[in-house]
């Protein structure tokens, strides 16, 4: 068993509204896996199915080698979960909640708990109602990182954290990975995903549309090229994978699918290159393409 999470063909509807429509997901052990998608695409629903809080309509699933619905309680000893919107009991202090979650999971590391409270600058004596959104997130994060588990499922865990705390969070995730733990991280912060994740899955309308390492995904997208040539350019338009070509005298601007870059460069050097700017696709462009497709296939804003 090398995979922490395997999901294939997952379906889940709420009444007549389909939320997941044949979703696939595979997370290797020991990796930090980014889980991305526009609002309402089914990320949280997937996570709740993985936690056995919702029951799948159909599809095959394994989490840490078990069935998330049937083996929920035993699996949960090895899983820590941080929801995107943490609600606390108004009259319990943050410290009490951390210890409660730890106790319910089967114990937590006191030393790590103290260290995390220090690092996240959390006041554990305050009562639930008095915490801000960011501080409520910290309570859940401390409880999760202080527990001794194999898999962390984090659903937009940093919403409400300030940039300083965001950095602390990234350090914690990196430390978890170094200790060989698996992290499934749903996030909208692309820089966070870029820094932390080994592989990502992008979902849209309940289906997985892209999965792989960031390098692989980059490969699938377009590089933008601007060049000034010695002579008029060759027949670039006929090359496969070239888009949005603009020629102004000896100046050329184009988009090219990254795996077709070779032929374009060859053609450009044939005309004598005076200057060349080639920009790899940003992660933003990568995601925006998928996100905007979701809204009726509008053109990607450039």
């Amino acid at each position: 068993m090398t995979r922490a999470i395997t999901v294939s063909g997952l379906h889940k509807s709420f009444g007549r509204t389909p939320a997941l429509d044949g979703l696939d997901l595979s997370v290797e052990r020991g990796e930090v896996h980014g889980f991305l998608g526009p609002n309402g695409s089914g990320k949280s629903t997937t996570i709740r199915v993985l936690l056995g809080l919702l029951r799948a309509d159909s599809g095959a699933m394994q989490v840490l080698g078990g069935d998330p619905w049937r083996d929920a309680v035993t699996l949960h000893r090895r899983i820590a979960y941080v929801p995107g919107d943490v609600t606390l009991w108004r009259n319990l202090s943050g410290g009490e909640v951390i210890d409660l979650y730890g106790g319910l999971r089967g114990g937590l590391d006191r030393a790590r708990r103290a260290e995390l409270i220090e690092r996240f600058q959390l006041d554990p004596t305050r009562k639930g109602r008095t915490y801000s959104k960011g501080n409520r997130q910290k309570v859940a994060l401390v409880a999760a990182f202080a527990s001794d588990v194999d898999l962390l499922i984090l659903d937009e865990p940093t919403s409400g954290l300030d940039p300083l705390m965001e950095e602390v969070f990234q350090g914690c995730v990196a430390a978890e990975r170094d200790r060989g733990r698996t992290v499934l991280l749903s996030s909208h912060l692309l820089s966070e995903v870029e820094t932390l994740c080994d592989r990502v899955s992008i979902i849209r309308r309940g289906q997985t549309v892209e999965t792989g390492s960031l390098a692989e995904l980059r490969h699938l997208t377009r590089t933008s090229v601007t060049a000034e040539l010695a002579t008029a350019p060759g027949p670039l338009r006929e090359l496969p994978g070239v888009h949005d070509l603009v020629v102004q005298g000896n100046r050329v601007k184009l988009q090219v699918e990254t795996d077709r870059l070779d032929a374009v460069l060859r053609s450009l050097t044939d005309s004598g290159v005076r200057s060349l700017i080639s920009t790899p696709p940003t992660l933003e462009e990568l995601f925006l393409r998928h996100y905007t497709d979701d809204r009726g296939g509008q053109a990607v804003p450039r």
Binding site: L92, G95, V97, L100, G102, T125, K127
Partner: peptide, 21 residues
């Protein structure tokens, strides 16, 4: 005003939580 609570808790089961609530 809400008074501060303990920094560490003794609740470790859902039954204790229910009783507390």
């Amino acid at each position: 005003p809400t008074r501060p609570g303990p920094a560490a808790g003794r609740l470790t089961t859902t039954t204790q939580l229910a009783w507390r609530l």
